[in-house]
Write a protein that binds this DNA or RNA. Structure first.
Lengths: 149, 149
DNA sequence: TGAATGTCTACAAAAATTGTCAATAAAGTA
DNA sequence: TACTTTATTGACAATTTTTGTAGACATTCA
């Protein structure tokens, strides 16, 4: 449960932009993501500063992706708000916190495995795939159970 | 960075017990784990309630593992303090929080992958392995770089 | 009885999270 | 130019989580 609400909203917003034809403004993003508009007012400029989206001000303005959806990974978006993806301070890639030697040899490698798996999964998912999955019809199994009822 | 200090202390304490011949009392555990004794006073009873350690009161008392170290997984200890291991509320196995349909089809499966990888890794590591790794000498590569300096 | 130990509960301080708001800047249009 | 629409910025308050401490108590042994 370590993904904060802001991170979640950010990924939803990027997904919405990946699915949209043209630009979306803050009100449209708030509706699409089910996020408070006032929070998106903080989230979107952060995504912009990170080079993930670009914005246009004034009437008809809004946000759009700064790159093709296939080139934006989930890892990239998550990192803007979460920073290090290691589950604990002594297992980060950059400047890990110090820890006892015994921990260094045992628990640290364990958490590094979790870290690497997380990075690998998030780095392997892009917003073209996510947008496609989001558009897909409900799966057969879901329809089947609906028919049963 | 989602592993809390208490969880970390708990895993260190179980590791210390897995490496110890006989029982360790709170003072010894505090020294071995580099955790405040007052925090272990809360952590150890929780481990006991979870059936991971057992305790003996009175002079000569202390804690020991309730099962062979090989039978205690890291997942089991972590779950006592973290509960659900999903990175976000709508990707838990039990009673996930509701989320928009679009998220349900795209981001949720992504986070479920992270959840499953985490559980798989933590469930595959036991405290016999951790204790062995903790006892091991520094690796050759480490000595080599030390010689260079 | 007294010393050594674990148990329980309440709590306070600090930190992180979540959301709101008001003031401002920029761009388009009449 | 004046007005409207939109993004930008920074400060902030409320809430929740985390972290650690402390005191009163229970149990066991010598």
């Amino acid at each position: 449960m370590w993904v904060t609400r802001r991170t979640d909203y950010a990924t939803r917003a990027v997904l919405a932009l990946a699915m949209a034809e043209d630009a979306l403004n803050l009100d449209e993003l708030a509706e699409a993501t089910e996020a408070p508009r006032s929070v998106l007012e903080q989230v979107m400029p952060a995504l912009r500063a990170a080079g993930i989206v670009r914005s246009v001000r004034g009437p008809g303005g809004g946000y759009r992706l700064n790159h093709p959806p296939a080139e934006v990974t989930l890892e990239r978006v998550v990192r803007v708000f979460e920073g290090q993806l290691a589950p604990i301070g002594y297992a980060t890639r950059q400047e890990p916190d110090p820890c006892p030697v015994i921990v260094e040899r045992s628990l640290r490698p364990a958490w590094e495995q979790v870290r690497d798996a997380t990075i690998s999964i998030l780095g392997g998912i892009n917003f073209a795939d996510l947008a496609e999955a989001a558009r897909a019809e409900p799966k057969a199994s879901v329809r089947t159970s609906a028919r049963r009822t």
